[in-house]
Amino acid sequence: MIKLLDKITLDAREVRAGFADTMMELAEKNHKIVYLAADLMGTLGMATFEKTYPERCINTGIAEANMVGMACGMSVAGMVPFVHSFGPFATRRCFDQIYMSGAYAKANVKIIGSDPGVCAAFNGGTHMPFEDAALMTSIPEMTVVEPCDRVQLQNLLPQIADTYGMFYIRLVRKKNPLIYAEDAQFEIGKAARVREGSDVTIIASGIMVEQAILAADALAAEGISARVLDMFTWKPLDEQAILEAAQETGCIVTAENHNILNGLGSAVAGYLARRRPTPVEMVGVNDEFGEVGPESYLRERFDLTADHIIRAAKAAIARK
């Protein structure tokens, strides 16, 4: 069951601490689980895991293509590999390996791409993936998820470990707001409805879920009733929730920390165009490269705020 906190608060724990805890629990229960990183073992706080399971924790060095290929081979021979690098290197650097040795060969690898979009902050444009999820959703049979907080991540990880197939997990590593209560439960492929509403639906994911909730609350003060869906599964898309939103609220705003081209907005609009044409406004990165700076600056720079969502919601309603 999806349980929200009464008030969004900054999580006392970093997301990566939750990640490392859950990986420890999973590895203890399932001896097939292995973890591979390409010289970024420390960035997800996996030191305890490495110490506890030295043989099942492999640092491949700075060689992402080989890391992903090895993981695919390991899965074919019975293991359940999780691999991690920063988002751009976990996806575009080894796209062909993920495609052929992975998905095409029906391997079972869980790929974690950290610091999505503007979360790459001071690492700048070279490290700022606005296209990673687009690449991953373009591969048949990939499951693509973007958790919005630590609780959601920790609830999804065991399901991901237990479900055979290729996954891409778009992961914020550090301090992040907490949206959900600790015992909230999620189902992959099913959007979490975090605000009820009838005038417009905001479909958001990742760091934009918090902004969508802030936008909905601000719109409510103006008498506009906004539904908010946390679409943490980008693929397979929860088409039923999108269709209901279109039928019941008549217009849609999407909000993503990603290029709006080939991202969540494109996926939602593409589905609605085929099934039920509905006004859609998209909040996200407008086909630009990233740049360096604090995340707060980058969110403004790339239109990723509650204010942008509020404006888009009003524009969508006006198009009904």
Binding site: I58, A65, G69, A71, G73, S75, V76, A77, A105
Partner: peptide, 11 residues
């Protein structure tokens, strides 16, 4: 090459 390394390690 990489998948063979992975298979050998997994075994």
């Amino acid at each position: 090459a990489s998948t063979a390394v992975g298979i050998a390690l997994a075994n």
